[in-house]
Amino acid sequence: MVGADPARPVVNARTVVLGRLRRALQPGVVPEPIVRAYRQAGPSPPGAPALLDRLQARLLDLGAGVRRTAPDTVAEVIAALLAARGATTVVVPAGLPRTFVPGAVVDAADRPAPTLDQVDLVVTGCAVAIAETGTLVLDGSPDQGRRALTLVPDWHIAVVAAARVVETLPEAIARLDPTRPLTFISGPSATSDIEFRRVEGVHGPRTLDVILVTTGG
């Protein structure tokens, strides 16, 4: 603990606050157990075709683009998206398969985050996707990179392996490591602050494309 003001050590406030809280509570009260009668998982196993359909529908609803492809054609799909939008500078995290975007710049730890503003597009993997809510979760693994990477560029393509698609939020929570920096992404950035009308594209990437990689072809 750091006492920010030596005249009034912060540790003192800690003692006072904890003392107040302990006095406020009756001793010996045991909290009731949490009844988890809610759905802990959906009926479909991860990657089931029904889940992929649902995830796709939700993502489209949220304003994201969705492509489905087999593992050996991911690079072609990305190339087509790039050509269609005319993106020239692409950055990828170090752990993304190099074959996905040949010629992409690989992010480096010493690259200042503000320079990512000059990049058109970032392509990453994804830790878990939640079909019910259309949510992608990034956990900073080598194929997803540091948080700034998927935040500063205006266009994000996430490559999602079918096996990582679960139905419900509790299934995703169970799979994630809370000690990693986590970002839950449900569509492109948006706001409802003006008259509660939803507007897409504020500070985060204004374009989000998802490539669902299915092993069945």
């Binding site: 939700r58 949220l62 730890a109 939640i130 019910e132 809510t133 259309g134 949510t135 900073g140 540091r146 948080r147 700034a148 939020l169 809370p178 000690t179 990693r180 920096p181 986590l182 970002t183 839950f184 992404i185 449900s186 569509g187 492109p188 950035s189 948006a190 985060g204």
Partner: peptide, 18 residues
């Protein structure tokens, strides 16, 4: 919303990230 667009979670300091 079924889920808000962004939720961030962090634990202390992560070297090289944030």
């Amino acid at each position: 919303e079924r889920m808000n667009p962004y939720t961030s979670m962090w634990t202390g300091v992560t070297p090289g990230d944030g």
